[in-house]
Design a protein around this nucleic acid. Structure first.
Lengths: 115, 115
DNA sequence: AATATAAGTATATTTTAGTATACTAATATC
DNA sequence: GATATTAGTATACTAAAATATACTTATATT
């Protein structure tokens, strides 16, 4: 259970760190910022990640109102994940992260295959 | 040892996640973005953190050229940590993080004491 | 002479995040 | 009738990260 509301933060960014305490959640947001994805797509892109871990992270992001989960009554199961409006507002953050990463890669020679 | 140069990244933000694989390093950058700090200051602000952990994180950030370490020949020891020019360029990222965190706190009622 | 100080290091221990592996449900396909 | 499919769950295990605790060094203070 995530209980952000019971905590007090000494500075604004702490909320961000509380939410993105691991890179996986932010990476999921990054992937979903390119459009809707199914569980298996995310699993593939985030490899190696176990179903358990991915499932848990998605649940957390949903609790935090950052993504939305849409279940289709099909067999085999189909579940789609999409950024919520609050999640969409993370795009400027992601864009700055991309800009800085590209600068860093250019400066220190780390290869970047694609954006 | 951090060997970013030996890795290839499938998208730009991966470098960022590789560097900020834990919240501590980004929090250190956040604190230093307000100015120079000594080891003990950081230790106080990042409480609870052990000397060992803080020392290790600072070493990593220095290896990544994001901070600079200045040793004074004094007793008791005095060491000052400052953002490097590359670290300074993370400020736009931090600013977007602050903006989003404030929006999120306002929307979901999480308290933020100060910026 | 004992104690405090800052910036760590050393060692052992604990926590916790993630992994590996196997399993399920309901239908479609070979 | 056996097998594949997706989106998970369940259980047990492992490895990495952080903690707790004690120690160091050289000077200044009580």
């Amino acid at each position: 259970m995530i209980l952000l509301n019971e905590k007090k933060y000494s500075f604004s960014t702490e909320i961000f760190f509380e939410i993105f305490d691991d890179r996986l959640k932010l990476m999921i947001i990054w992937y979903l910022s390119n459009g809707t994805m199914r569980f298996k797509d995310l699993s593939k892109y985030l490899y190696p990640i176990t179903n358990k871990t991915l499932s848990f992270k998605l649940k957390q992001l949903e609790e935090l109102h950052l993504i939305e989960r849409k279940v289709f009554a099909e067999v085999p199961p189909k579940v789609e994940y999409t950024l919520s409006s609050h999640g969409e507002l993370l795009k400027p953050v992601i864009n700055e992260i991309i800009a800085w990463s590209q600068y860093y890669a250019k400066t220190f020679g780390t290869m970047v295959v694609e954006e």
